[in-house]
Nucleic acid binder design. Structure first.
Lengths: 335, 335
DNA sequence: TTGTACGCGTTATCAA
DNA sequence: TTGATAACGCGTACAA
């Protein structure tokens, strides 16, 4: 049985309140008393019991991060950044994997673990903004491209604008048959819809026809399969905008294995700027969201909602984060 | 304020004990009573308070997983698998990132969060077996290649044998100048040492000279840099065994950008079988550990230690998991 | 089968 | 500046 406040108090010859004061850095403690208590703490190896602390305070010091899947480099990298940001506030991050199931996502926000976490950073895949409860017990911060004006705080890049930028880059290269990989029918697949909108916008500006290829999900295998279908079809593209980097890497794989040169025959650009794209062959042009800033803002937003008082209440806020076009070999190389 | 046992009891017109019995699936409850209580639970949206439950029982239902970094695909994939395995026992997984700092790793096992977690699955990078405390409050399962006969349960593949297999594969291809990338001086870098040992073993069998290239860490950039040094050096290799897939992908990047053909001029094999390697160009030969089984065993081992009684005590156990050689284009392709 | 009462380790209120 | 004591919500002897 680990030592408690009581044991420390007994050893130091004071009351538990005094020990509590020392532990919590309360100011009005006589130096001599403090030293004596500290000695007892060290001797016993006392560690505060979080469960008891939470039972009293209602705060656990734990926030949850819910992502569709950790296996995707983008989410893994984002998770790492959020853990780092949370650490600066000495928060612990509980990572939840939804696998993109609407059911699981709904349970999550409905608060199956309501008491255990102080806040939730949520990167929804299946859930649209309307599905979210209007007011939740624990504050929620939404990540990624969602319907604006949702019920919760939200930080994201302008996905549509970024997609248009990527497409314009391909147009600027002189390409004229520009395909998009990653189109999804499902109306709740907002990410796909926003990127598609940007793609269409840029093509419309240049009076170019769209070539739209669906993808079941956003993995390499989907990109590889979609590219294969495009190559087997009537309108072989001379450039492809993929809705994320994994799709792009899969597409490139198909192109190279069929003897197409990248970017010589087909230029390819992705979205996310995952580490893989910096070391693939060819290296991958992409849209790079300011991921560290997204992570920092998400944690800060939660911090404000949790900070009792001032900005705790108030209407949901929409924060835009910068992105930039990163040009590498897959669009501008010699291949 | 969320409803508690008391509120449910009041609404159902019973005592809190009865409600508690219903919540915990206690058998001897009159069907009528049970129905009435359940109705009250649903109406109020009652959710048990985990903090209070833990304070009573000493169990939190949370296990921690400590990995060097989530950004590495291998650890991200492993984390996902462990979360899935833990879910089957309705455990929650708290993921901790150590960044490979010995300090952080030590704190972790020393139990900074001692009260908050029931068990720890730990993939150490900096900590050697001797650094681990002999007996810990919370059970620990070690992952990855560690010193055998450590103080805790341990599940891993036979890293040395696997490394020898990979190297023999290169030898079987007729290669004679076979380099290793990923060598580390630090005596605590056990993974690197075990793989190096396997590499040396296989080379010795064939009476071939070792060509050993160091790497600061196991990322793509390290692999790219190490390969560059090898190509600039005196003994240009015709094959490379990289201690993980990321190093291999980095090395391939350097080779291709310098006009070397893979595997034509230099064959490359990695270790881990991360998803990237299945879609890179060329696709990557590698050693594939049975990752799902590692995850399952780690969780099961913890389950046994936690299962009050029987196998709870007992000496540490060492579990070996299978691996297999996966041959792809980077060693057997046409390039 | 169900109810009462206590304690888990904290924090917070109020006195001293 | 410090001490006694009441919650926080739950599980569980023990009693009914």
């Amino acid at each position: 049985m680990p030592p408690g406040l009581k044991d420390v108090a007994a050893r130091a010859g004071v009351s538990i309140k005094t020990v509590s004061n020392v532990v919590n850095g309360y100011v009005h403690v006589a130096p001599a008393t403090r030293a004596r208590v500290q000695a007892a703490i060290d001797a016993l190896g006392y560690v505060p019991n979080m469960a008891a602390r939470q039972l009293r305070s209602g705060r656990s010091g734990v926030i949850a991060l819910a992502v569709p899947e950790l296996q995707s480099p983008y989410f893994a990298e984002m998770a790492g950044l959020i853990v780092q940001a949370a650490e600066r506030r000495s928060w612990t991050v509980l990572i939840d994997q939804t696998d993109g199931h609407a059911e699981r996502e709904r349970n999550l926000v409905a608060g199956l673990r309501r008491h255990a976490i102080d806040g939730l950073i949520f990167s929804p895949l299946a859930l649209a903004g309307d599905d979210l409860p209007k007011r939740t017990e624990t504050p929620i911060v939404l990540l990624g491209e969602r319907v604006w004006h949702g019920p919760a705080d939200h930080v994201a890049i302008d996905s549509t604008a970024a997609a248009a930028e990527a497409t314009r880059h391909l147009i600027g290269l002189g390409r004229r048959r520009i395909a998009a990989i990653g189109v999804q029918e499902d109306p709740s697949a907002v990410t796909a819809h926003q990127r598609l909108a940007g793609y269409r916008l840029a093509l419309a500006e240049a009076a170019l026809p769209p070539i739209e290829a669906p993808a079941a999900s956003f993995h390499r295998a989907d990109g590889a399969a979609a590219m294969a279908r495009l190559l087997d079809g009537d309108s072989r593209p001379d450039a492809v905008f993929c809705f994320n980097d994994l799709l792009a890497l899969g597409a490139i794989r198909t192109l190279l294995s069929r003897g197409c040169r990248v970017p010589g025959d087909v230029a390819v650009i992705g979205f996310d700027d995952i580490e893989d794209g910096r070391f693939s062959t060819p290296t991958l042009s992409t849209i790079a969201p300011d991921a560290p800033r997204i992570a920092q803002l998400a944690v800060d937003l939660l911090g404000e909602r949790l900070g009792d008082g001032s900005a705790a209440a108030g209407p949901p806020r929409e924060l835009r984060v910068d992105h930039r076009l990163v040009i590498r070999e897959s669009t501008a190389g010699q291949g």
